[in-house]
């Protein structure tokens, strides 16, 4: 390494649990050598009052959440045109116990599910007979992205998400 001016570069050896290692101490990258200021005497920084602040008040315009729904096409009578997604797992299928019931041909009793994990919505096929497709590709599981086209039997569902301030 080139020694510039009168700066002092020193090489130190240190031992640790891994073995002997070399560290390069370059004054340019060392913290300021000025001694830390002495603590102020008590009273100088005396608190005058305490204000309780809600986290939401502080971060209200900063934290961002996710809102998502499924727009449903070609599903026939009795199926909503739109289905709001939340944190709850949603099973799609012909059975009456499905949260999003699609009582249609080529749809299995429990065909697929949508669930929310670590800020992502996932679609997972439940070993359906005719498969679950995202943008034309048969999937076992897929992270959903805005405007993905999900096909279950003849039903088409568009996944729509938006970021919202909380």
């Amino acid at each position: 390494m080139k020694n510039e001016g009168n700066q002092d570069f020193s090489f130190h050896r240190r031992k640790d649990d891994v073995g002997e290692r070399t560290q390069i101490h370059d004054p340019r990258f060392m913290p300021d050598a000025t001694p830390p200021p002495t603590p102020k005497e008590s009273g100088e920084r005396k608190r005058k009052a305490t204000m309780r602040v809600e986290r939401k008040q502080l971060l209200g315009d900063i934290t961002v959440g996710l809102r998502a729904h499924l727009d449903i096409f070609e599903a026939g009578p009795g199926v909503p045109e739109s289905f709001e997604l939340g944190d709850e797992e949603v099973v799609l299928g012909r059975n009456a116990d499905c949260l999003l019931r699609l009582d249609l041909d080529h749809v299995s009793r429990h065909h697929a599910k949508v669930y929310f994990l670590e800020d992502e919505y996932y679609l997972e096929d439940l070993q359906s007979t005719n498969g679950t497709f995202v943008n034309g590709v048969q999937v076992t599981r897929c992270v959903l992205r805005n405007n993905d086209l999900v096909e279950i039997g003849a039903t088409k569902l568009y996944f729509v998400e938006e970021r919202i301030r909380q």
Partner: peptide, 13 residues
Amino acid sequence: MGVFWAREGQIIP
């Protein structure tokens, strides 16, 4: 021939 672009987070059979 099926053609698609591999996409992270996808598991296909």
